[in-house]
């Protein structure tokens, strides 16, 4: 796509800024930076933060990693809304995509005469990325890791497949929507089912908290991977019929 985006400073009709304007901009940003640094240095040191509070309630969270506990238990409302924001971005991107109703989600171009070394390497890399993603998802319970890391590793593997030229991803209307929404749907369902009896929405029962967090993270991993891949493929102007010699077979 960047070959189409002209990178000159003054592409087309926009004139270059005058040097006096540039100096004014520089002074303004210097003043902003300086003011913020002065505010930082002059302000009193912030309090102890929430580390002690989080540590004292860890046995209620169902996991052992404090960041995962904050993300998916103590402040799970924020994470729910974040996945909703991701979904909104994905829907906006999907609306700018050409329709792919009569295509399967992944198409392999067997006639693509690619580098055999690249194809062999990809076979290893994608398998490794899948295992790594599962490990990251599982390890999120007690060490750095979780749905976002696992989802981005899977999306990276799919981007590698796409860039090899042998594989093409299409966004079938129904299947794409299913993949993109499953994270938010599972999150909302689990959060809603928690609100029985005297419990509130997203207040997990103590004994099932770890398992519920794992279920949410599993669904969120699928959605995050699909959304990131959609964002990547959406930026490439993909017209396989025009660019490829042979019609790709499924």
């Amino acid at each position: 796509m960047f070959d189409r985006l002209v990178l000159h400073e003054t592409s087309g009709t926009k004139p270059a800024l005058k040097s006096s304007t540039k100096i004014a901009c520089g002074l303004a940003s210097f003043a902003l930076s300086g003011g913020l640094i002065a505010a930082l240095l002059l302000s009193e040191r912030a309090g102890p933060g929430l580390a002690a509070l989080t540590a004292s309630r860890m046995d209620e969270s169902g996991v052992e990693n404090p960041v995962t506990a904050v993300l998916l238990n103590f402040r799970s409302y924020d994470t729910l809304l974040e996945i909703a924001v991701l979904l909104i971005v994905a829907v906006a991107m999907l609306s700018m995509q050409p329709s792919a109703t009569n295509r399967s989600m992944v198409e392999v171009n067997h006639r693509h005469s690619g580098d055999p070394v690249l194809a062999g390497l990809l076979r290893w890399l994608v398998a490794l990325a899948t295992v790594l993603s599962g490990y990251l998802l599982w390890t999120g319970a007690y060490a750095p890791g979780g749905a976002f890391q696992a989802g981005s590793v899977i999306a990276g593997a799919c981007v590698a497949l796409k860039l090899s030229g042998r594989y093409h991803f299409f966004w079938h209307p129904l299947k794409a929507r299913l993949l993109l929404t499953i994270g938010l749907a599972v999150f909302v369902l689990v959060g809603g089912f928690c609100a029985t009896g005297d419990k509130r929405v997203l207040e997990y029962p103590l004994e099932y908290a770890g398992m519920l967090i794992l279920i949410i993270e599993l669904a969120a991993t699928v959605s995050i991977a699909a959304i990131l891949l959609l964002l990547f493929t959406g930026l490439q102007d993909d017209k396989p019929d025009a660019t490829q010699a042979g019609r790709p077979s499924t």
């Binding site: 796509m1 985006l5 989080t54 960041v67 904050v70 924020d78 994905a90 991107m93 995050i224 959406g234």
Partner: peptide, 29 residues
């Protein structure tokens, strides 16, 4: 000790920033 709340906020923010950047790039194109 490390405060986990800002860490969780940054983790959330990175993903949203990437998604927003991708949408902006598409609009720019």
């Amino acid at each position: 000790s490390i405060d986990p709340v800002p860490h969780a906020m940054v983790l959330t923010g990175i993903v949203v920033a990437v998604a927003g950047t991708a949408l902006c790039l598409k609009l720019a194109v």
